[in-house]
């Protein structure tokens, strides 16, 4: 099942790139279409952050170590740290809190 998802999504993502360099530009240059394309990753990435934090197998729950880790990631982002630093800070914070409690 995981293989099916991996292969179907990977091939699909490639076809999207191929379509981009192949379809007439006028099709993708309409303002509303561009705005939808700009907002799609925003809505879905925000949703992925939220479910990553609060989804405990189909019910809502708060894991404080996890929440603190992502909170530390926000601090790193505000401090303009690189991607790698941000996620390492998150993992380290969560790991330390779990070791202490």
């Amino acid at each position: 099942m995981i293989w099916l998802a991996v292969l179907a999504a990977a091939v699909g993502c490639y076809l999207l790139k191929l379509a981009g360099v192949s379809v007439p530009a006028s099709l993708l240059e309409r303002p509303a279409v561009q705005r939808i394309a700009m907002f799609l990753p925003v809505a879905m990435l925000a949703a992925l952050v939220a479910t990553g934090l609060f989804d405990a197998g189909g019910r809502l729950a708060v894991d404080f170590a996890l929440l603190a880790g992502v909170g530390a990631a926000v601090v790193a982002l505000v401090a303009r740290q690189s991607f790698l630093v941000v996620i390492l800070v998150a993992a380290a914070t969560t790991a330390v809190l779990r070791a202490l409690t």
Binding site: L45, L48, V49, G52, L53, A65, L66, G69, V70, A73, V74, L77, F83, V86, I87, V89, A90, A91, A92, T93, T94, A95, V96, R98
Partner: peptide, 13 residues
């Protein structure tokens, strides 16, 4: 190791 915090942190970044 807190690796489960990496995914939401990555999405946030």
């Amino acid at each position: 190791l807190g690796l489960d915090a990496m995914a939401p942190a990555a999405f946030l970044a």
